[in-house]
């Protein structure tokens, strides 16, 4: 297989042998009639990791998450949560997961307190503990002041936070979050992101799906890119960029330099090209050949005075488009 074939990318940093992965999926296939929705996906997520599942609509993200949530039975391959086979012991699996679907299920006849008590009872939390648990999750999600409000009257952002409160009721080790920030305004999206960060700090393992790329870039320790049911790449962001040979752009302003400097910069190891703009230079850097720090050091060694040195944030959308070749479901 050629090295530039995206499908040749393999997961990196496998889970150490002595650690039981929280999520372990191997060669998962799901069919909906004639549609082959998921085609041989394999994932391993160690404890405490935030795994981002990226793909266009209809790529198979929700289907994979539903398999883990014990909601789809017609699959082949293996799916395990904490070593428990989803197909064989779904009841045990349900105790260990918190599943948040890509829609908010509304019981319009319940208020926030009743909604959480309803699910606390469904998760068999002892009656005496329910109030404390509910107060805790409401505080964590900053919804304490909304406890008496009707669920239906909450804003979309609040509903998402309430849904997160719901999945935390039974303190599951694994959170399966299907597009939690979908349809939220920027403020609500930031609030949800902050909440997820807090959950990560609490040691929760999170599998989160999204089709909004930079939403996951800030949050996830590893990312899997799925397209038409197949995993096209997975690993940390840096690993994915490196594997795809994506170039980092570094914007540089130099003072007192002449045109000869540009030619010298082009000769630095790892620099693919230099574009001259009116106010700056845009240096295209192959990161697998040289790190940004190496470039900075090389520039200093050239004896130029650096007024500005600004590496451009990695463009995940470019990575995604390259991997998926612009295809959508």
């Amino acid at each position: 297989m050629p090295p530039d074939d995206p499908t040749s990318l393999k997961p990196t940093d496998p889970v150490p042998a002595d650690v039981v992965p929280v999520v372990s999926i191997e060669n998962l296939h799901v069919h909906y009639g004639a549609i082959h929705a998921v085609r041989g996906i394999s994932i391993e997520i160690p404890p405490g990791e935030v795994y981002g599942f990226i793909g266009p609509n209809g790529a198979g993200k929700s289907t994979t998450i539903k398999v883990l949530a014990t909601l789809i039975g017609h699959f082949t391959g293996t799916a395990k949560i904490n070593g428990i086979d989803v197909a064989r012991r779904p009841q045990e699996v349900r105790e260990q997961i918190g599943y948040m679907p890509d829609f908010f299920g509304v019981y319009e006849d319940l208020n926030v307190r009743e909604y959480l008590h309803f699910f606390a009872a469904a998760y068999r939390i002892p009656r005496k503990q329910r109030k404390t648990v509910i107060d805790d999750v409401l505080e964590l999600t900053d919804l304490t002041h909304k406890i008496g409000d009707q669920v239906d009257s909450l804003s979309r952002g609040m509903k998402q936070r309430l849904a997160l409160a719901r999945v935390l009721l039974h303190d599951p080790q694994l959170l399966l979050l299907d597009e939690p920030a979908s349809g939220l305004d920027p403020r609500a999206r930031i609030e949800v992101r902050e909440l997820l960060k807090a959950l990560t700090e609490m040691g929760k393992t999170i599998l989160i799906s999204s089709h909004i790329l930079h939403e996951l870039a800030h949050l996830c320790t590893r990312i899997g890119i799925i397209e038409t049911g197949e995993m096209v790449a997975q690993g940390s962001l840096q690993e994915i960029y490196r594997q795809l040979q994506l170039m980092r752009i570094v914007h540089v302003q130099l003072t007192g330099s002449d045109d000869g400097v540009v030619d010298q910069i082009r000769k630095i190891k790892g620099v693919a090209d230099v574009e001259q703009h009116v106010d700056r230079l845009a240096i295209q850097l192959l990161e697998d050949h040289a790190a940004v720090e190496d470039l900075h050091e090389a520039l200093v060694n050239l004896g130029v005075k650096i007024h500005m040195f600004q590496p451009e944030a990695m463009d995940m959308e470019t990575a995604f488009m390259k991997l998926t070749e612009g295809k959508t479901a």
Binding site: R94, G105, Y123
Partner: peptide
């Protein structure tokens, strides 16, 4: 229709 069935099915209730 209220999209709540999956929430119940993912809970430990049989």
């Amino acid at each position: 229709s209220h999209q709540t069935i999956d929430l119940l099915l993912a809970s430990p209730m049989t």
